[in-house]
Structure formats: structure tokens, C-alpha cells
Design a protein around this nucleic acid. Structure first.
Length: 508
RNA sequence: GGGCCGGUAGCUCAAUGGUAGAGCACUGCCCUUUUAAGGCAGGGGUUCUGGGUUCGAGUCCCAGCCGGCUCACCA
């Protein structure tokens, strides 16, 4: 980079590398054959007493990155890291010979080496490999971050995730756990008779969610394509085709702001089940999340942002009930659920909220009542829904793909699951009436023409697919990144995405 | 995009407007069971960038760059 000093440290290491080559070591050998990984060594030998190790003197070979070096004249120690664990290495001149000992003395923190030797315990009892042979496997030409404090600078941790993973054990654990979350999701759905599918990431008509898409272009077809905002419409085409239970875990792309809860590309689990409705999905979701927590954490209680969360209980309340329950104490008048029976009444309550609020809700001139109700809910209740809570019955206007409630056509059979103040899942009884779907699309088209860039586009083939008859079905999306945040106690979505989007680094 | 906060050695961090420092890392020497090894001696800075105020700026002011938090956008 542009630092003079780093060039100097790097130059020193370049020189050492040349010296290592002069000793007859290959600098970047093609392979090495360890007998064990470091975690395997620890698992197999950690419990064995010193005498037993001494009797056996079994020879092993391990490889890893040098993390500490403590020379003691004609002997010395080092720690080698691999698989998230460390193993101590003891190198004596009289055991490895002059050439290997010279290599040991030339090692820098960060170098990758192979060690052959037998396991023993030092005076302090630490399991250690007594080296009989050293192999050089790769050079670290750049200096590692500080060995004790690790790497704290968030920008470097995100831009150079490999460094973060190398020196911050917690970072590694977060991503190991993320992998376990995804594995558990798959295992659960597989066991429920779902099949995993893959549908287009590049779509000619972006659908399935109300969000602004990224646009790209296919040269050979001279065709504008959109990175998908959701896989929904394709997954439901599969229900029409006869796959009764499908799921997909993959990336969605939304051209929106970046925050601690939003990354432009994020991972969504979507699943669809024929002959089920949104009530069935609530039950399924509880079982799914308990399964994930149990298999990832081994328990249903855990801490998030300093608060104890539990997957033992999932509350259920309607959007209206949530507004009433979490209505700010400071406000003068207080609504009851019945007060929202007339859809237009919501505007009075937005007004009432604004009078007591520091940050009033700003609504456009012709905001539909349903959108106003959702705004009110999000402002009043969303960040106070800490324990798992299903919020059900969403306004029709904000739900173009959901089936209406039988007893109230202004609302749809839909829920969102909130945990830790975040929307974690969104599900509904799928609208399968092609005529009604066309009406909903037309309404969205009207919004689009008024300038709402996130309104849903009309997808004629989707209507055609519904016209062949789609079984009644329930469908759901689960934010995998946010779920991982919860289960790793991470305050930001960037902590659970290996390479979150950042502005490109300035080149000097 | 708005508001607030931050950017000092490779890393973690100090430094009333008055000589830019420590620990780790690095270099040399000593040390054959240490473990934040130890001892002795050293090297290393465009204080994010560019202006301004001042006798004097890491410090104060302005602009920009990058980041964090937050609000908005997002449903």
C-alpha cells in the first residue's frame, strides 16, 4: 500500500524468504501431507497424561500458521494455528538439525509451516509437538495485527476479512455458527419433505417483494435484466408445476440503503407449502426456529444485545393489537383496537401520535389507509418487539401477493415475525386467484406510475401460471443474516456477512 | 442525503495550542521446557488530504476523503 514503513517491514521479510530459499527450502511448495489437523490432535491427545505420551512417542505431522514465536537460544517455541485452534511447537537445535533450526530462526509471525515430531507435555503441562522436522509452506510478507489486542479497526476487519478471521477468534466463530444455522435450516426442511431448488437470480421482471432492484444487461440478447429482489414468483410457479414443498436459500438484491440491518445483497430462505395457510406456517416457524437454536446453540435461551431472548414462547398479536399495546405512554389519548375498525380512523391516530412524538410520522398527501397503519405500527411497536412475536393481519394495500381474510377484505392472511426488534420472517397465505392477482398488480402499476419505484411490476406469465391453478399454499421468507445476528449476538449485519458492501478503497 | 462521533508507527492506544510517545510487532546480541517468555541495545511518523487562524497546529476553523452510529430512503 502507500505506507513507506510497511514496505520496509515487507522488504525484511522478502530478504528472509530469499535466505530460506538459499537453505534449500522450496518457498511455495505445492502440497504437504499432515497426519492430523490441529483440532484432531487436540481431540485425540488432550486428555492423555505425559507418561503415556512419552511411552508412545507417536510421530505426527501438522501444518498451520505461525502465531507466536519464543526463541530461547538453541531452542525455542512457537504456536501454530489451524482449524481455529493452536498447537505449541518445541524446536531444539539438537533435535531438528542446523538447517531446520536456521529456518526456525528465520520464521516470521504469519508464516505457514509444517511440523513433524512427537507429542509431549512441557513442564507447565501444555500439549506440545517436539519437532524432528520443519517444512516451509508459505511466507507472510506482510506483518500481522497485534497478537494480544487483535484487530479492532472495523473498517479493516470488513475490508480485509481474512485478517479478521486470522487473528480474531470470535469472528471465525460467528461464521462457523452461520454455517451451522444454514445447515440446520436445510436439515429441518429436508426432514419435512421439502426439496431445495434454485430459481433465477437474474429476472426480466423483478417480483416477489416491494423494493427497488439493481439493473444489469445481457449483451447477446440485448436484454435488460434485474437482480432478483425475491425468488417468490418463481417458487410459486413450481407449486403450479406440482412440487408441493419447495425451498431456496440464496441471495436477494435490493437497491436500498445500508444499515446495521440491511446489506444490498442478503441471504433469504424462502419456502412454500401446498395446502397450508399462514396459521400452519406460524406453527412450522416455531418448530423451525427451535430446531435451529437447539442444533446451533444446544438451547432455546440466549443473549442478544444485552437482553435474554427465548425461543420457548412465541407471542401472537395482530398489527392493531401491537399498536395499542406499545402506544407511547407520553401520548395524551390512547387507542383501542375497535378504534381502527374504520380504515380512515388511522389518520386521526397518526395525528395523535405526532402530537406527542419528537419525530412525527410524515405521510404523503394520498397515503392509503393500510400504508398509514403499517407506518404507525413500525414506528410505535417494531423496535419494542424483543421476544419472538408474530404480528398478523397486514393491510391489503401493502400485500399484493397475499390472500385476503375471509371476514375482512381490507386485510390479508399475513404475518411477520419480530425478534430483537428486527423483522426476521414474513409469510402469508398465497393469493392464487389469477383475476384478483391481476387487480392487485394493476393497483401496484398505478402506484408505480405515480412514481413509487418499489411498487410491484406486472408479471403476465405469473398470472398465466396462476390461471392453470395453483393449490392453496402458504409461503414464507426468513432473513438468514438477521437470524444469524440473533444466534451470534451480533449487533450489525456486517458482522455476519463475510464481505459486506463498502465503498471501494481509494487507490493511492 | 441530514445529524453526531472518529481517523496519530504494521497493530492497540496516549499526547493543556509549545521537542509526537508507550506496549506489541520489527532489527542486532545473549538465553535448550517458554507461553502477553526474559535481558541489553536499536530502527521506524506526510498525525487521512487540502486550505486557513496563530510567533507556533496532532490539537482551533473551513472544505474534502474514508469509516462508525443514527435519522431518512427502504416497506
Amino acid at each position: 500500500m502507500h505506507d513507506h514503513k510497511q514496505d520496509e517491514l515487507s522488504l525484511q521479510r522478502q530478504k528472509k524468504l530469499a535466505t530460506i530459499r538459499e537453505l534449500g527450502y522450496e518457498c511455495y511448495p505445492h502440497k504437504y501431507e499432515p497426519t492430523h489437523t490441529i483440532p484432531q490432535i487436540l481431540a485425540e491427545y488432550s486428555s492423555r497424561p505425559a507418561e503415556e505420551l512419552e511411552e508412545q512417542r507417536a510421530t505426527v505431522r501438522v501444518a498451520g500458521r505461525v502465531m507466536t514465536i519464543r526463541p530461547h537460544g538453541k531452542a525455542g517455541f512457537a504456536h501454530v494455528a489451524g482449524g481455529g485452534k493452536r498447537l505449541q511447537v518445541y524446536v531444539r537445535l539438537d533435535a531438528v538439525g542446523e538447517r531446520a533450526f536456521e529456518l526456525y530462526q528465520l520464521l516470521d509471525l504469519g508464516d505457514v509451516i509444517g511440523v513433524e515430531g512427537y507429542l509431549f507435555r512441557t513442564r507447565t503441562g501444555e500439549l506440545t509437538i517436539h519437532a524432528s522436522r520443519l517444512d516451509f509452506l508459505a511466507k507472510s510478507l506482510l506483518p500481522l495485527p497485534e497478537k494480544w489486542h487483535g484487530l479492532a479497526d472495523l473498517e479493516i476487519r470488513h475490508r480485509q476479512r481474512y485478517l479478521d478471521l486470522m487473528v480474531n477468534d470470535e469472528a471465525r466463530q460467528v461464521f462457523e455458527r452461520r454455517s451451522a444455522v444454514v445447515r440446520a435450516l436445510r436439515a429441518f426442511l429436508d426432514s419435512e419433505g421439502y426439496i431445495e431448488v434454485e430459481t433465477p437470480m437474474m429476472q426480466p421482471i423483478p417480483g416477489g417483494a416491494l423494493a427497488r432492484p439493481f439493473i444489469t444487461h445481457h449483451n447477446a440478447l440485448d436484454l435488460d435484466l434485474y437482480l432478483r429482489v425475491a425468488p417468490e414468483l418463481y417458487l410459486k410457479r413450481l407449486l403450479v408445476g406440482g412440487f408441493d414443498r419447495v425451498y431456496e436459500i440464496n441471495r436477494n438484491f435490493r437497491n436500498e440503503g445500508i444499515s446495521t440491518q440491511h446489506n444490498p445483497e442478503f441471504t433469504m430462505l424462502e419456502f412454500y407449502q401446498c395446502y397450508a395457510d399462514y396459521l400452519d406456517l406460524m406453527d412450522l416457524t416455531e418448530r423451525l426456529l427451535r430446531h435451529v437454536a437447539q442444533s446451533v446453540l444446544g438451547k432455546l435461551e440466549f443473549e442478544f444485545e444485552g437482553r435474554a431472548l427465548s425461543f420457548q414462547q412465541f407471542r401472537r398479536m395482530t398489527m392493531k393489537e401491537a399498536i395499542v399495546e406499545y402506544w407511547p405512554a407520553a401520548a395524551t389519548s390512547r387507542p383501542r383496537v375497535e378504534d381502527f375498525s374504520d380504515p380512515r380512523a388511522v389518520f386521526r391516530w397518526v395525528e395523535a401520535y405526532n402530537q406527542a412524538a419528537q419525530e412525527p410520522i410524515a405521510l404523503g398527501a394520498d397515503t392509503p389507509a393500510g400504508l398509514a397503519l403499517q407506518e404507525l405500527f413500525e414506528t410505535v411497536a417494531e423496535d419494542r418487539l424483543i421476544q419472538p412475536t408474530f404480528v398478523l393481519d397486514y393491510p391489503l394495500e401493502v400485500s399484493p401477493l397475499s390472500k385476503q381474510k375471509a371476514d375482512d377484505p381490507n386485510f390479508v392472511e399475513r404475518f411477520e415475525l419480530y425478534i430483537g426488534g428486527m423483522e426476521v420472517a414474513n409469510a402469508f397465505s398465497e393469493l392464487n386467484d389469477p383475476q384478483e392477482q391481476r387487480d392487485r398488480f394493476n393497483y401496484q402499476q398505478m402506484l408505480r406510475e405515480k412514481g413509487d419505484l418499489s411498487a410491484h411490476a406486472i408479471d403476465e406469465d405469473y398470472i398465466r401460471a396462476l390461471s392453470y391453478g395453483m393449490p392453496p399454499a402458504g409461503g414464507e421468507g426468513v432473513g438468514v443474516d438477521r437470524l444469524t445476528m440473533l444466534l451470534t449476538n451480533s449487533p450489525s449485519i456486517r458482522d455476519v456477512i463475510l464481505f459486506p458492501l463498502l465503498r471501494p478503497e481509494k487507490t493511492a
